[in-house]
Design a protein around this nucleic acid. Structure first.
Length: 201
DNA sequence: TAGGCCATCTGGTCCT
DNA sequence: AGGACCAGATGGCCTA
């Protein structure tokens, strides 16, 4: 097995066995700040030693760096997927138990949060309380969420629907359903996430 | 077989 | 300088 750094070890300074491309060659062996100026011949010698890495070694070093970056990127995406799984875990389950896709999960979560907020708001109104208080989700409100399985409503899942679709009206969304009932809290109604056709579920 | 979803790789950009 | 983040490309798998 050929050592990645064999070339470096034999040709560059021991303190900076470093890895970079052509641009950084000049910094391979920095002179100590307090060192007095050296003869031109010695300086040239050092420059030559710093320059002596082969092209193949540079390629190998770059490849290693790429592999490392790939590994980090993989871990990053795994973390992202773990977070999505956690999010799926706290959302109401679908009747057919099929796993939500990533985009479906995000849209469902968005709608779910909106619906829970609506629930709180309506509950507050019905209780004769002021609705000016900030909306906070509580376990009592979560208990309002009915079990899955009802008529589906549908909304366009197109990306251009950010302005008026209930799914995207986060601050003060227009109600996707009659404000007096809670049917919109049911999973099917929450999304249209799968482009559900009414009556299919 | 086409289309959707996904994982991975990759190069660019931004941030610390 | 190195890591995080992002978006495009690519190929595999699955389903209608």
């Amino acid at each position: 097995m050929d050592s990645v750094y064999s070339d470096i070890d034999s040709n560059s300074c021991d303190f900076f066995p470093h890895t970079d491309d052509e641009d950084s060659r000049g910094s391979l062996c920095p002179a100590s700040p307090d060192s007095s100026p050296e003869p031109e011949q010695q300086q040239q010698k050092k420059r030559r030693r710093g320059r002596a890495r082969s092209e193949a070694t540079v390629q190998v070093v770059k490849k290693n760096r790429r592999l490392k970056a790939n590994d980090r990127e993989r871990n990053r995406m795994h973390n992202l997927n773990d977070a999505l799984d956690a999010l799926r875990g706290v959302l109401p389950a679908f009747p057919d138990e099929t796993k939500l896709t990533k985009i479906e999960t995000l849209r469902f979560a968005h709608n779910y949060i909106w619906a829970l907020s609506e629930t709180i708001r309506i509950a507050d109104l019905q209780a004769g309380k002021s609705s000016s208080a900030p909306l906070l989700l509580s376990s009592a409100c979560l208990a309002e969420v009915p079990s899955p399985g009802s008529d589906a409503c549908s909304w366009s899942s197109s990306r251009s629907s950010s302005s008026c679709s209930p799914a995207y009206c986060a601050s003060s969304p227009g109600s996707p359903a009659a404000p007096e009932d809670y049917s919109y809290l049911q999973p099917d109604a929450l999304f249209g996430v799968r482009g559900f056709v009414p009556g299919v579920y």
